[in-house]
Design a protein around this nucleic acid. Structure first.
Lengths: 345, 345
DNA sequence: TTGAAAGCGGTACCAA
DNA sequence: TTGGTACCGCTTTCAA
């Protein structure tokens, strides 16, 4: 593979000129540029990214930090980020903080970022003081998604608003006995999304003079299996809700499945609503509050690029809209309070 | 931030010695190494990856090429890869080939890889001749996942075997009228997984002297919504199958939902089985043939690292086991052929 | 065991 | 508009 020297020789100019010509800088005559470009093309020249990084101090790589990757939300956001960055000729370096064993999380370290990336995008993760200080010290521009940290740029939805919409939907249908899945587990005590959604659930009920017994507010690991397992006791309890609001679609789908297993028809006996609009929600007929996840990734990518180009670019706090999508999992409560228990297995 | 020079000065040795000491090479006296390590620690020294890459020619970065990211299978594989690589102090550079508009795909290019990565992992993508030649020319070690290319290393499952297991399961339950979702669409004509699974479906039926009318073999875009849409005609047709085999769990979940919409109970009126064991399959009670996706990522990462360390390392073709997981979506066919149409909406 | 010095392949400043 | 050249920070012979 050829180097800048080969191109310079072939074009009969200096390496400095080749560098300028190829990067589209001015102060290069059209003729010269043409000669250089042609020589470069013929030699299949591609500048070594490591060499230019070393010389220029910019890597054209952005670290995307995720708590874990194999979740629809994260994968989708990253996809959006990737597409935004590639427009600006930048790349995604993945930093998955999920530890080897469940529940553990790696610490963001100096060596993961130092001289390796030009900026950082943090997905729905609460960084501790040390990690925040690290990024600050490294002088890296940051954009967070779904979770505000310091005064860094952030792209997100209004979680409270989203939950309010979900709760109001079931209340408007006439439900008064509403359970909640997605209470804040210890592991997420520092995350805004679980907190905000749980809080908004309670507040919105209160707003209408309703309440929810504590045993109907269920903590969850935010997975479908977990939610299905945990909601069972409530569904089979002596008195049960006529609607369940889940803090995410994945949990909502778990609840739907659990309901069917308990012989409850959705939405006749039990209404279920989620938040997110997961890929599978449409097919499975789940009513939900949609957020455009791909777009959030896009926006975050663009925001970071702006900060990269212009040191002084203002940090942003973009709040993306959400929208109720009514499908087949919600309906007015059954006439007979508590619903009719049917057996279909 | 300090450089190797600062450390050398602080430790009172040359930069060469610092380099050796810190990388754990031999020919450094224990005392010297200790002094260097201490100096480095005190200065919070971390070697510049770009500088060492330029000097050594190795980047410690691996390109992971995916057709698109926001799909459970891909995200999960990548998660496995990431964990394997990070053990060896290597990183994942994401290369998402999904184009801006649906159905288009970016071309893997020189500039994406050249001097940027030490190796490549290709996920379930058929690279064209040019792309293959490019990788070969660059001399990069490769591991593919789920799709064999040339004689490159590959980690995969036996797709035919997986499908055979799925089909046999429904046949063993007594079904004879079986439809298939996941016929090979044009866009995937060059992918082995859709082909192999479709082929094995037909072969396994034939093996038992059974057949499947062409209108029961449904092409699909491999999404849940798509499958739900496309299966409708079959479910509402004059004669309908008692079981549907889907080439993936995502499609199978779509079929389950479509069945319910058509007033068919699963599994009483219709059995549904998929392949993959998607995260949501357990919660939703889908019978499936499980593959361990995370592990495949892991293995691929390890295989690549081996080839990276040892140029002469043998290429591998690891075929991972699959396993039938019977849940609640399959049962013997209804007594009355064609099933009883019930209305529950 | 240690050090000196020549790269690695560009970028960017200063002269010309 | 161009060229010369000093770095960028580390690795890696080759000598000492």
């Amino acid at each position: 593979m050829s180097t800048i020297n080969d191109v310079a020789r072939a074009a009969g100019v200096s390496v400095a000129t080749v560098s300028r010509a190829l990067r589209g800088l001015d102060r290069v005559s059209p003729q010269t540029r043409a000669r250089v470009v042609q020589a470069a093309t013929e030699l299949h020249y591609v500048a070594s990214p490591t060499a230019s990084s070393l010389a220029s101090g910019r890597t054209k790589v952005v670290a995307v930090v995720v708590p874990f990757l194999a979740r629809w939300f994260f994968a989708t956001v990253i996809s959006g980020i990737e597409k935004a960055l590639r427009r600006h000729d930048h790349h995604v370096l993945l930093i998955d903080l999920e530890g080897e064993s469940f529940g553990t999380r790696l610490h963001l370290s100096h060596s993961m970022l130092w001289k390796r990336v030009d900026g950082v995008i943090v997905l729905a993760t609460a960084l501790d003081e040390q990690e925040q200080a690290l990024i600050e010290r490294l002088g890296l521009p940051v954009v967070t998604i779904g979770h505000r940290i310091r005064d860094w740029s952030c792209v997100r939805i209004d979680d409270k608003e989203a939950m309010r919409i979900a709760v109001r939907h079931v209340l408007d249908l006439g439900h008064t006995d509403v359970a909640y899945v997605g209470g804040v587990p210890d592991a997420s005590a520092d995350l805004q999304t679980p907190q905000d959604r749980a809080r908004a659930f309670a507040d919105t009920l209160a707003e209408r003079g309703l309440g929810c017994p504590p045993e109907w507010v269920i903590e969850s690991d935010w997975t479908a299996v977990g939610a299905a397992r945990d909601i069972m006791a409530v569904l089979n309890g002596p008195s049960r809700p006529t609607a369940v609001v889940a803090a995410s679609d994945e949990m909502a789908l778990g609840v739907m499945a659990a309901a069917r297993r308990s012989g409850l028809a959705v939405p006749q006996d039990l209404s279920v609503i989620g938040v997110d609009d997961h890929v599978l929600s449409e097919a499975l007929g789940l009513t939900t509050v949609r957020q455009d996840v791909l777009c959030q990734g896009h926006r975050a990518g663009e925001a970071l690029m702006r900060q990269l180009v212009d040191e002084a670019a203002a940090t942003v706090d973009e709040v993306m809209p959400v929208q109720l999508v009514v499908r087949e999992s919600t309906a007015p409560p059954p006439k007979t309070r508590g619903g009719t228990r049917v057996t279909n297995t």
